[in-house]
Nucleic acid binder design. Structure first.
Lengths: 226, 226
DNA sequence: ACCTGAACACCGTTCAAGT
DNA sequence: ACCTGAACACCGTTCAAGT
């Protein structure tokens, strides 16, 4: 239950339908493309050939590009509805008495979402920040749930939504890297959740000395030949 | 396993050098290709154009394919030395008095390895199972370290090496998905390590591990930690 | 035995022509 | 206004010809 919040957001209030009216045939083509994309992405993964999608939709390749100028755009549009569903689920989870458990369940749902198409996770970062209504809704709901869980002291505080997106991306990508061993995703999610639980139990000053070079050491490697 | 030769486990004992002698020019080309690949992969990521590598090496594209019939093969060969280094580091870590901390450090090193080229992590699963000496060495050392940490009760038992490879792949891929925020990798690694710690603590039992820590407001501390 | 690079195949994207 | 598909560009891979 989301009560009174009058946040001055001002952005991205547009419906799921066309922002401006499309001609009848164009509208039909758009929907055929979305349906075909969903099918083909499901069958062949998110890197399926664009022409396959156009063919499946029964339109020319040019029509596809007219409606969706990039593959990302098509992906985003195809995933919109699922994002809305994820947002709804997340919102309902926010009402849970145990925000920590709710967040855990959210993580699982998010991973499931990211797994709808093989290879979707690769673009998840981009897709999730594309600013469509579905993205915004899911993003806001997730942020809220995370804050609740952190405020309740059930999830560690040094984690932000971007980290979570990274986690989900990573778990999903990683699980797809290997032959589909079904238990693995759950195991990884569970392990991750345990890791996210607050407080981080300190068994000494471990992990404090993690070497922290983001870019470095190519010069050292480059000098190997001589 | 058709062991036409005598030694039963003889497979992986061969030097880093050529398995069979190469003509002088071929040998030189091979090394030029490896050096060029390292440079180009570093600059442009693991999906760099093969022709760029050939050009950088000063050889024809056909020569590249003669030596390395697939991109994976070239990647694997380029990464061999680093894998040996990782294996050595892992072996030395196995002597640590705290297998759990040692494993944590190994995870960090593994992630760093997987980050040497942008996009390497995508192929990490394949690369890591390619059966080269470096892979085998690193893989065996890692398995041993993991077993030690599990036997010591410091890492949860329901995790295998494939899971770890997945974790590393995931963390690395995920961190590359987002703009390079340097703290993120360490944060994710640390969170993951906490998750891997055994036993998976129940919410009530967790405090027991936190033995002599004074100051009970853990959530408050966690929320501002960086 | 090895090298070379033109040739082939494939795929994403554009755009002039059509309705 | 929208659709079409031939054309273009790019890149990975092969192979006949050269040394």
């Amino acid at each position: 239950m989301s009560s009174a919040r009058s946040t001055p957001k001002a952005v991205s209030v547009h419906s799921n339908e066309a922002p401006r009216p499309l001609r009848a045939d164009a509208r039909r083509n758009r929907e055929r493309l979305l349906a075909a994309a969903d099918e083909v992405f499901t069958e062949r993964g998110a890197e399926a050939a664009m022409e396959d999608i156009a063919r499946r939709a029964g339109v020319g390749i040019g029509t596809l590009y007219r409606h969706f100028p990039t593959r990302e755009a098509l992906l985003v549009a195809t995933v919109e509805e699922q994002l809305h569903a994820l947002a709804r689920k997340t919102q309902s989870l926010a009402a849970s008495p145990s925000p920590g458990d709710a967040f855990a369940e959210f993580l699982g749902a998010f991973v499931e979402h990211a797994s709808t198409y093989r290879g979707l996770a690769t673009s998840l970062g981009v897709v999730f920040q594309s600013g469509t209504p579905g993205c915004t809704a899911a993003s806001e709901a997730a942020t809220r749930l995370l804050s609740l869980a952190q405020a309740a002291g059930e999830i560690r505080g040094d984690i932000d939504l971007d980290d979570v997106v990274c986690l989900v991306t990573g778990i999903t990508l990683a699980a797809q890297q290997t032959p589909p061993e079904p238990g693995r995703v759950q195991r990884l999610v569970r392990a991750f959740i345990e890791g996210l639980r607050a407080p981080a139990p300190s068994k000494g000053a471990r992990a404090a000395q993690d070497d922290a070079r983001p870019g470095g050491s190519r010069a050292a490697r480059a000098s190997r030949a001589s």
